[in-house]
Every structure is written in C-alpha cells, then in structure tokens.
Design a protein around this nucleic acid. Sequence first.
DNA 1: TATGAATGAGCTTTCATTCAT
DNA 2: AATGAATGAAAGCTCATTCAT
Lengths: 191, 191, 191, 191
Amino acid sequence: MTAQARRAQIVAATIDVIAEIGYGQTSFARIAEHAKLSSTRLISYHFAGKDELITAVAEDAITSIGDHLARQLAAETTASGMLRAYIEGMVQFTATHRSRMKALLEIFLNGGLHYDATTDQSVVGHVETILRQGQAGGEFREFDARVMATAVQRAVEGLPFLLESTPDLDCAAYGRELVTLFELGTRRSSE
Amino acid sequence: MTAQARRAQIVAATIDVIAEIGYGQTSFARIAEHAKLSSTRLISYHFAGKDELITAVAEDAITSIGDHLARQLAAETTASGMLRAYIEGMVQFTATHRSRMKALLEIFLNGGLHYDATTDQSVVGHVETILRQGQAGGEFREFDARVMATAVQRAVEGLPFLLESTPDLDCAAYGRELVTLFELGTRRSSE
Amino acid sequence: MTAQARRAQIVAATIDVIAEIGYGQTSFARIAEHAKLSSTRLISYHFAGKDELITAVAEDAITSIGDHLARQLAAETTASGMLRAYIEGMVQFTATHRSRMKALLEIFLNGGLHYDATTDQSVVGHVETILRQGQAGGEFREFDARVMATAVQRAVEGLPFLLESTPDLDCAAYGRELVTLFELGTRRSSE
Amino acid sequence: MTAQARRAQIVAATIDVIAEIGYGQTSFARIAEHAKLSSTRLISYHFAGKDELITAVAEDAITSIGDHLARQLAAETTASGMLRAYIEGMVQFTATHRSRMKALLEIFLNGGLHYDATTDQSVVGHVETILRQGQAGGEFREFDARVMATAVQRAVEGLPFLLESTPDLDCAAYGRELVTLFELGTRRSSE
DNA sequence: TATGAATGAGCTTTCATTCAT
DNA sequence: AATGAATGAAAGCTCATTCAT
C-alpha cells in the first residue's frame, strides 16, 4: 500500500469518526479501530502528530468545498446570482458530503486548526467579498458586509447540525429558504 | 460556606474556564485551579459528576437568558416586535454576559448537554413559536418556520465568536443589522 | 500513609533505581515496580512530573551531603585541613551512601537538573572557595583555583564509578591517597 | 556511495548529535535528521543495531586518541615525561576534537559500551601502566597506582565538561596546571 | 546499496472518579 | 462541609527494529 493511499484512508476514517462522535471524543485509538488498522502506530507513522492529521482533514474538506463552489460560481455574473450559487452550493455540498462538512465544522469550532491568512480568506472571507461586490455594483442595499456575511455563513453551517436531529431533512428546500431570506435581506428596497 | 454558595462559585469558575479555553480543554483540574480550590475533590463532592456540573452551568445560563428575554418581550404585542425584541435581547445579553453565553454555546456545540424536551423548547423553540404566530396573524410571509428559526438562532450565536476575534465590536450595530435583515426577510412582500 | 512519607518512599526507590540501572533507563514503571506501588499513577499523584521527582531526588542527596560536610568541616581552621576534611568527607559519604551519590552523579551527568545559582554554588563552588582561601592565607602555592577545583571534584566523583567495578574497594585508602595527592599538589613548595 | 563512506558519515553524525544533546537524548531519528538521511532505515541497514553503532563511534574515538597519544609518547623515555605527554596529549586532543571526546565520555558514563579487556586496557589502563613503570624505575613515590590513574583520568575528562560552560577556556593552561599537579603529586619527596 | 511500510513496546501525563476519614 | 490519598483507563508520542522489495 502506498503512503498516499494510506494517508487518504486514515484521513477518511478520521472524518467519519469526528462526524460521528465529535472532535472532543476523537482519538487515534478510535480512528485506528474505525479504519481497522493494526495499531495507532500506523497513524503516527504517516502523520507527524495529531495536528498534522487534523490539518490534513481540514485541508481535504476545504479543497473539496473550494472545487465545488468554483464550479457552482463559474457561470454567475451578478452578485445576487453568486450569493444564491454560494448558498445552494454549500447546501448541496453539505447534503452530499455530510461527514466531511460536519468534521470540518467540528475542527473549526474546537480550534483544532491553526489559522493562516489563506485559510481564513478561503473559508470566511468568500461571502463577504461577494457582498461587497454587490454593494459596489449597486445590486445590494447598504448594510454591514461583515455582519451579513456572518449571518450567511452561520445559516449555512446550521445545516449539518440540523441534519443530525433530522436526517431526512429536505436539503434543497432548506437551501431555497435561505436563498429567499438573503435575497430579500440584501436587495435594494426600491426593487 | 454553604453548599449553595460553593456550587455557585464552582459554576462561575466553570463558565470562565469554558469561555476562556473551550469546552474540550476544560477539566476539573483547571476549574479547581481557576477557583483556587485545594483539590478537584471539592467539585466531585458538590456535583455528582461532570454531567451534573455541565448541566448546572447550562441551566444557569439558560435561566439568565430566559429572564432577560421575558423582560424584553413583555411589552411587545406584534410578532415582528417580538422578533426584534428577541434578537436585540439576545445580542444585549451576549454583550453584557460574554462568558456565560460563550460557555453555553460551547456546551451545546460539543454535545455536553443531554437534551430533553424542556431544554430544547426553551432554547431553540422560542423563535419558531414567534415566527409561527406572525404567520398565523398575517404579519409574516410564508416560509418554513423551522429553517427561519435556525437562521435567526445561528445569526445570534455568531456574535460570541465574532467577539473573540473582534472584542471591540459595536454589538448594538450588530443587533440592528440582524433586525433589519430578518424584518426584510420575514415581512409580507405586499407591505 | 501521609503524603510526606509516600514522597520519601518514592524518592528512595528512585535513588535505588537510578543507581542500579542508570538515569537513562529509569522510568516511572521501573520505580513503581521497585517500590511495589500499585501503579505509576501514584508517582504522578505525588509529583507534578518527572522533573519534580528528579529535582526532589537531587535535593535529597545535596542536602545530605551538605549536612555531612558541614559537620566534617566545622572543626577545621586551616585551608589544608578543610581540603582534607572535604575530600575525606565526600569519600566517607560515598562509601556509606553509594546509591544516593551514584544517583546524584547520574542526574548531573545527564542534565536532569535545572541549575540555579544556589545549586551550582553548593555543589561545585565549595572546593574552589576553600582553595582560594588557602592561597589568600599563604597556605597554598599559586595555581588556577578553577582547574584545581575541577581536579578535586572529578577525583572524588570517580569513586562511585570505581565502586561499581570494584565493590570491595577500600574507600578509606582511596580517600587517603587523594588527600596526599592534593596536599602535595597544593602546598607551598618551600614547605 | 560505498558502504564504508556511508558508515563513516553516520558515525560522524552520531558523534555530533551525542556531543550536542547528550547520549540519553540521542536516537536514530535525530541522527538521521542531522545527517539528512531519508529515514532511520539507512542506519539500521549499515549497523546491526544501536549497540554496533555506539561501539563504532567509541572505537572511532579510541583509535584517534590512541594514534595521537602514540605520537606524543614516542619520544619520551622517562615515566614523568610520559605522564606529562599523556596529560598534554589528551588535553590537546580534547581541544581539537571536542565533539569526539565529548561523545566518547557520554558513551562511557552512560554505560553504552560493553567493556571487554582490550577496551578497558586501552582506555583506563594506559595511565596506570605508566605510573607503575615510574614507581618501578624509582622516579615516582609510593602510591596506589590505580587510585592515581583514576585521578589523572578523571581530571583529564573534566575538560570537555568545562568547555561546555566555558567554551573559550585556555586549554593549554588547563593542561599545564594538571601536569604540575601530578608532577608534584607523584615525584619522590626527596627530589 | 537503498528504501517504503509497518510494528510492538514503552514512555509521561491527564482524565474523572472513589474510598475512607 | 471538607479533605487526603489513591486509582484504572486512556491519551499522544517516540523508541529501535523488521519485512519485503
């Protein structure tokens, strides 16, 4: 087995474990058990430490989301279109990659990631940029872009938690509701 | 020292510790250190276990928030007024009780609380009830009350995290932005 | 069992283990086994960490040696008398407290102790002070006190290692030989 | 790369690492890092085990010292001359090969070497032989040759440790002081 | 000659909890 | 109401070594 494949296997198992039992309960032992590894030593061998493993998990998720969003946003030309695409893209991704998204949120909420400027921008700053563009172009009304971005981000992040208590939730409907909410909340009142 | 006073002291220390270093890093040892107790034994003595302590902390916060909101909402007669009062009440409470709110969120997000119907209703269901009343009374447009309630709740919960990276944030402005957002997002379009 | 007694028991066991198998091979598990403790957890309970345990061991030895030397040197008035008393005192102590001295040397040689000024003075500086007094008072010839002190100290420290390969060594004779060596090496040539 | 060259490279790296961080902290991982090897596997490949590596390091140092001393002692005909040449030779070697000597001492003091008669003779017995020759030939007074040899050996070994706390030490002066000490301590009193 | 992958045993430290006053 | 002493389990990490190319 190649190191790359083994690392991928361990990352996948870690995602599952974090999503299932939470960041705080996740340990090498639990990951090894889930991945059916002979011992936790195999994890230590392929990752320099817990930090590196967690970082790898986060990067895996962030990259996937980034790719997905890039595709979703490619065709959009208006800010409101981009905002809609962002929300629906995130909701879609969450619906089809529940564990990955849940694990990413767990990591962020528990401070398991050492931020850098790139990470911060790719995760949090995306929406804010769209909002500012919309205001500059006259599509959106005046509001505090930071606050609105937070609201969008939190609303989207609410889905993984909702899915835990309601696994059969209609995600598409959830997305549509959010899109409507933020369209009404951001558009120029004269429209 | 009375048992009641000692319990209150320990709960207060636990709130501080959770707010400062997060739920995951919080331990009896660190709470004892913060409260300047001679040993963790004093915590075990006054609380049956970690669960009971965490529950006490959560209940402390929930009760405080409940009292605060009850006062804020008392004078309101319309659903939109109640929604505004709820958002501004929560933001105000967060601004003046940062640690308490942060600790409560940490506990919820890390699954430290064993839900029961009462807890769930008092925390999450409040907004949903208001929204349904508004729809029943014709004040609000049609939307999924559950989804909207989630969005409101998450938006409000965003403040404690924002305060960590931006301690000098203008909380009142944050509240006003959210009120505007949800007024635009919930009102009947004919208005 | 009182904490004090337990700490003393653990310190004694640690001294034995270090003396027997060396600093590098010494572990909590080995100490617990030697002291017949139920688990290593008992060591962690009474000492904040390995550093604290090692420091306690070193302090135990240093204090014992200090007391012994103080008694030996009390009656001496001349520098040559003090030097003789120092050498014989150290040799005597080593002969009757082999493990303690061996353990102390192991700790020093492996950098297990975080020096401070007091430690340094009490361990290394003692001889140098005596030598300088002897030179100032005209008893001793001119020489580099630092170098001579090192030679004395190393010669004395040689005994524990010699005792390992030759347990039946005549320590008193060893001491007498060293006294003669350093008397000849330090006295004024005109004598 | 030839096996011989690779072994030499690893031995050199091991010497550096032991001298820098001590025998106790030295591991294959750290040696590999220092030598910029891709993995510790390369060490295991060229040496049957840790023992063989350490033995190789010690032999490297012992051989170097032996060569150096042989040259220094070649011209000497008297025992006192040989003793002086030995001390100065060892001090010189230490001054110019600090790491090698430090590593050798670390290995000896931590029992990393499995003695055999040859090793013992070549390292410790050298001085004792000189001293006995001097006594047999009437140059030296009566003393216990074993004890005196120990004192000489330990005094010489003190230099590497002294150099750690005082890197700019005047080694030549250190050697002269020791030579004087042991000349005074060994010569016939009638002289 | 070299390497990638894997491994079992060991390490110190921290966890909440319990027994006995 | 409080405390001192003790505890089993689990954590992440490092050790030298080995199997199979």
